[in-house]
């Protein structure tokens, strides 16, 4: 494989939520990119060249660059996090692309994720969904010995499968309805299968789902594109389980009168 490639690079530029936005052609700045670089390192190289040329660098979110913080994420040729399965944008490497390949890079697109600038979006809605009920109430100092509540290994493993979600938002970007059902169900599922999570199980699912709607995410109509976009391969089975929990909770539990997270 050749060690460096030239790209035909088109990047979405948008100067804030109200700006219309448009693709800009940065092919002139995307030549001679090492195939060993990550996708974000490719953007770094392009940005350094842009800065030296006196042009505004491309804004994108990132932090850990090892696939775990969930900060990064762009749509590459229509695919959230690009072409490699189970891989975040920061872990995607340029050897997956060919010399001369045309790339269109865009932000997550969803009403509930307004664009901040260029490829960076506001995912505060996810935090507010968690604030609505994605927790177990346990003050520091009040906990019983950890071995007092045994958790069978299959249940702990199941919880861990759901808890692996990194909150990147790729599921929303992939969904034709811009639904965050996979994200919500992963959190509901993680806490809901554990014995510690039973006391708040009903109120959790009711509040989180209500907040999801309140934030303007769409409903799930079983396209399952979220599962294939998810870099952590969270299964859509969690959505089915959430729906069962929701149904049960709505008959046994009074509906929430307000959304717990507020608008803040």
């Amino acid at each position: 494989m050749s060690e460096s490639i030239d790209l035909k690079l088109h990047v979405w530029r948008q100067n804030g939520p109200k700006d219309q936005g448009r693709f800009e052609d940065y092919s002139a700045y995307a030549k001679n990119i090492s195939t060993h670089a990550s996708f974000l390192e490719c953007l770094d190289v392009v940005n350094e060249r842009l800065v030296l040329a006196g042009k505004d660098p491309i804004v994108f979110d990132h932090d850990c660059r090892e696939g775990i913080c969930g900060a990064c994420g762009v749509v590459i040729n229509g695919e959230p996090h690009g072409p490699q399965k189970a891989t975040t944008t920061c872990q995607l490497h340029m050897r997956k692309f060919t010399n001369g390949q045309e790339l269109y890079v865009e932000p997550w697109r969803a009403t509930a994720f307004p664009v901040i600038k260029d490829l960076a979006v506001d995912r505060g809605a996810f935090d507010r969904i968690v604030q609505a009920g994605g927790f177990i109430t346990a003050r520091a100092g009040s906990a019983p010995d950890a071995n007092d509540i045994p958790v069978p290994k299959p249940i702990a493993d199941d919880a861990m499968d759901a808890a692996a979600c990194i909150g990147c938002g790729a599921c929303v970007a992939a969904c034709p309805n811009a639904s965050a059902s996979l994200f919500v169900s992963a959190k509901v599922g993680h806490l809901g299968v554990l014995p510690q999570g039973q006391a708040e199980r009903d109120s959790r699912v009711l509040h989180m789902v209500a907040q999801h709607e309140h934030e303007g995410f769409g409903g799930c109509s079983n396209h399952y594109l979220c599962e294939s976009a998810c870099p952590k391969e969270i299964s859509v089975k969690w959505i089915a389980r959430m729906n069962r929990d929701l149904l049960k909770a709505s008959v046994t539990h009074a509906p929430p009168t307000k959304s717990g997270g507020g608008d803040g």
Binding site: F135, I136, D145, V151, K153, A156, H190, L191, Q196
Partner: peptide, 15 residues
């Protein structure tokens, strides 16, 4: 460990 288990941290478990 007690506090984190109470918060729902899915620590590895034995059978």
């Amino acid at each position: 460990i007690d506090q984190c288990a109470a918060l729902g941290v899915p620590f590895a478990r034995e059978y």
